[in-house]
Design a protein around this nucleic acid. Structure first.
Length: 491
RNA sequence: GGUCGCGUGGCCGAGUGGCUAGGCAGCGGUCUGCAAAACCGUGUACGGCGGUUCGAAUCCGCCCGUGACCUCCA
């Protein structure tokens, strides 16, 4: 069987065998958030997708350096190198320093990432922390003749660049088409070419976030930070660069151009793009105002939500679709995922209690191979999950005595379950912790159910049913077993 | 207008030129005092019209619908 990992590369529009440039090391750069507002669920999807990719690469034994930046400067309202700085605007609104905005939303972002059980990146560089690297890079691009300065602002010369290198290959577009598609510049004749973009922008007197540069006071353009930081921490050419599909056409296209104009090498071997999260078929985005905030989702406090859903249910829901497909968000879909997730978790508990038999009637080796095959095929988590439900069936059947599993297979199954459910998919039980009061409740429920058990032994079914009905009403789910009972609280 | 993508059974969502995706819901059964859970069984699904082929939902053409990008967004 094919043990290679295949990765869909946006550059070639094909799945390619993944071969790191310097095995066993793997360098991966993911465009992180611009921290001027709360991350919404769409953003979270991208980071959860790459978390699973990161986790799988680690699971395969690669030494991964995972860099995910924080954009905390240089991101203007419009990308025509005009308009207000996002941080400054927000700072004015909230009457705070721009860096207070940055701090607030960086912490918020980290909280959300932790709630979703994502691993921290190896390095999380900020744009403001790498101003000098960006300036150095701009100087090199200028020296190589692919940029020009006008009144303290430095522009990248796209037409010049495109004569020497391919431009727009990520979106498979030709320069002429791009030029045609560009709208008329309104009153902006500073740039030589319509497609040119700013590397460095001269500050205005009222600009809050500005730095000195060879071209005077100013701030970096949005795209240059990723080029500079990727180069600094991963080298002139590294393995994987990822981000949302919305970044493909402009941000990543320009990143490639900058890096190549600077170093004369192709910066990235595999480009990976995650698809958008949609609500009623429309992309979830900040500007559309249809973005869910994670805490709204958890509490259910949102007009479109019937109730709340736990972070792990949401993570599982996302893993049930492929990262390159759009995923549509609905109560029904979420509820289906919740049931499925609980089934998966419960089977995990059952697995831990399972006793080995002398023989096996199940094929764990095949199951394991199926799981690897799914992930090796461009991180196909929905297929992986389908196979994990095969495991669930095996576990429950063995528990019911309908299948048999021997010691070797049992251990193998436990390892597969642990590896894929917890290590790779990054799921975990999200039970509410039991407080002291919870312990009392627990004891009381046990006590009552023991009374019920006695009633059952005496064939006093009207009493036993009454107890069950009452407890069920109060959210205690009861399961009778052969010689006792099990119960759990509904969340 | 240009570029690219998508359209799968009640819902979500994979995949493939002929071989069961999976989850949820529904229906039937086993188990149970009755339930619940679990397990077993169960669905003539692939937008429309043509074409290629022994065979297409999967390839090609046209059409319809829909979305993304082309302007900030993961």
């Amino acid at each position: 069987m094919d043990k290679n990992l295949y990765v869909y590369n946006t550059l070639s529009r094909k799945k390619e065998i993944f071969e790191p440039i310097n095995p066993p090391f793997v360098g991966i750069y993911v465009c992180g958030p611009t921290v001027y507002s709360d991350v919404h669920l769409g953003n979270s999807r991208t980071f959860i997708s790459f978390d699973i990719i990161y986790r799988y690469l680690l699971h395969l034994g690669y030494k991964v350096r995972y860099v995910r930046n924080i954009t905390d400067a240089g991101h203007l309202e419009g990308d025509r190198d005009e308009g207000e700085d996002k941080f400054a605007k927000k700072a004015k609104l909230e009457q705070l320093e721009p860096m207070e905005i940055v701090q607030k939303y960086t912490i918020g972002f980290h909280d959300v990432m932790a709630i979703f059980n994502t691993l921290s990146p190896s390095i999380e560089p900020t744009a403001t922390g790498h101003i000098s690297e960006q300036i150095e890079m701009i100087k090199e691009i200028l020296a190589n003749g692919y940029a020009y300065e006008i009144n303290g602002t430095v522009y990248f010369d796209v037409e010049k660049y495109s004569k020497d290198f391919p431009y727009g290959q990520l979106t498979n577009r030709k320069l002429e088409d791009l030029l045609e598609g560009t709208r008329e510049l309104d009153g902006q004749d500073e740039k030589k070419g319509r497609l040119d973009f700013a590397l460095w922008i001269q500050s205005k007197p009222e600009t809050l976030m500005k730095w000195p540069s060879p071209w005077g006071w100013g701030f970096p353009g949005w795209h240059i930070e990723c080029s500079a930081m990727g180069k600094k921490y991963l080298g002139e050419t590294f393995d994987i660069h990822g981000g949302g599909m919305d970044l493909q056409a402009t941000h990543h296209t320009n990143e490639i151009a900058q890096s190549q104009a600077c170093s004369n090498t192709v910066p990235v071997k595999y480009w990976m793009h995650t698809n958008m999260l949609t609500v009623n078929g429309v992309r979830m985005s900040k500007s559309a105002g249809n973005g869910f905030l994670p805490h709204e989702l958890f509490t259910g406090n949102h007009p479109l939500l019937e109730r709340g859903y736990s972070p792990m249910v949401v993570r599982f829901f996302m893993a049930q679709s492929h990262y390159r497909s759009t995923l549509d968000f609905s109560n029904e879909a979420l509820q289906a995922s919740e049931k499925g997730f609980q089934k998966l978790m419960k089977a995990g508990e059952t697995l831990n209690k399972l006793k080995a038999e002398n023989e096996s009637t199940v094929n764990i080796e095949e199951l394991k191979n199926n799981c690897y095959a799914a992930m090796n095929d461009d991180f196909n988590t929905p297929i992986l999950i389908a196979h994990l439900f095969d495991a669930v069936r095996i576990i429950n059947s063995a528990n019911d005595g309908k299948e048999k599993i021997n010691q070797t297979d049992l251990e193998k199954l436990k390892l597969v379950y642990k590896s894929f459910v917890f290590d790779v998919l990054g799921l975990k039980e999200d039970k509410t912790e039991k407080s002291g009061e919870g312990q009392l409740t627990s004891d009381l429920i046990d006590f009552i159910l023991n009374l019920r058990l006695e009633a059952k032994k005496n064939k006093d079914f009207s009493t036993s049913d009454k107890i069950r009905d009452e407890l069920t009403k109060k959210g205690v789910k009861i399961k009778d077993t052969k010689d006792g009972f099990e119960w759990e609280l509904e969340n």
